[in-house]
Design a protein around this nucleic acid. Structure first.
Ligand code: ZN
Ligand code: ZN
Ligand code: ZN
Ligand code: ZN
Lengths: 176, 176
DNA sequence: GTCCTCCATGTGATTATATAACATTACAAA
DNA sequence: TTTGTAATGTTATATAATCACATGGAGGAC
């Protein structure tokens, strides 16, 4: 569905990725947001970096560095691991992509405009990943941190489970 | 809560690991808790598994599988990766240890008696790790999950930052 | 313009982390 | 004892990430 999703309350950030949507705009919007951001901050959005982001934007799943590397090679870029890792490092450092620690894999950021503490929902059946916002300082972890004097600088929040569309289906083989 | 803890407000779980404490009891208590749990649930707490847990309990840091493997070899156990990984898998599966995804490393559980959703605070300066409780269903992530119909089965919550004792010191070399 | 520097890219080699596949052993039920 | 099962051990391999060094291109100094 290209139009808005009426079922989700305003207070909650609606995660893209599980829901139906016009996916073409994901890629286009993601790339133009990245261009805007980079030119605004004087960052070099070079061809490799752009290509890697485009590869990531093409699916709402996390891709391993070596999968990305394969696709880079197909497009005529360098084919050695550092090529992919360096581009990924640039994207992650500048908030255009995130690493999913649980999967040792990478995904394009869904909210590249705002600085945010991301949280992820990972479907163990279809590997789809949706990005939501987390509030590290709130909740039990924040309380424990304040209680002990721990200074939180960065948080990893990843939930594993079953996405809505996989939950509907009877258990079949993976990758529905 | 299993029993009342007088010094700490009920809402906050006190994390061990950053604070001063009688560390000898950590190891002893951890091992006996594991023995109790395993005999209670009919699990085989074999020598390798016990040794790995003991190694983990000896420090409030996460240890890589190959570090553990080295120490296993020193104690006359098998010296190939599966030996360590299988023991670690047993410990993690049965809630006696956790994997820190951010570090690709493992740590003994600080609350082995209760079923819980762990959260971790990782000091980037001294590598100390403290375990706290997380409440996955609460907070922004839980709200996003409910809003989209995502079923959370397991959560990874890891905060990186600076522990209280490192925060006090002026910046020197690592491992103060 | 030339030269120079910085940064990005490319490549080969290596290290780190994790699993596959199969043989052997320990132990207990039948 | 036989037999099944779980645990351990070993070899080899897969997967993930980094090191070290060479090349190349976009400015800026001159
Ligand atoms: Zn993001
Ligand atoms: Zn799914
Ligand atoms: Zn725990
Ligand atoms: Zn510290």
């Amino acid at each position: 569905m290209t139009s808005g999703n009426p079922t989700v309350p305003e207070s909650v950030t609606p995660p893209v990725g599980f829901t139906q949507h016009d996916h073409a705009t994901c890629v286009v919007d993601g790339l133009s947001a990245a261009e805007a951001r980079c030119s605004g901050e004087g960052l070099h959005f070079t061809p490799v970096r752009r290509k890697v982001l485009e590869i990531l934007l093409q699916e709402h799943r996390a891709l391993g560095a070596y999968v990305i590397l394969d696709r880079l090679r197909d497009d005529g870029f360098g084919s050695q691991p550092p090529v992919a890792y360096r581009a990924l490092d640039f994207l992650v450092t500048n908030g255009l992509a995130h690493k999913i620690e649980r999967l040792n894999a990478f995904i394009a950021c869904s909210h590249p405009r705002a600085r945010h503490a991301p949280a992820f929902m990972i479907c163990r059946l279809c590997d789809a990943v949706a990005e939501a916002q987390s509030s590290p300082a709130r909740g039990a972890l924040g309380a424990a941190a304040r209680a002990t004097g721990f200074l939180i600088e960065r948080t990893v929040v990843e939930a594993e489970g079953v996405c809505p569309s996989c939950a509907e289906k009877p258990p079949e083989g993976k990758r529905a």
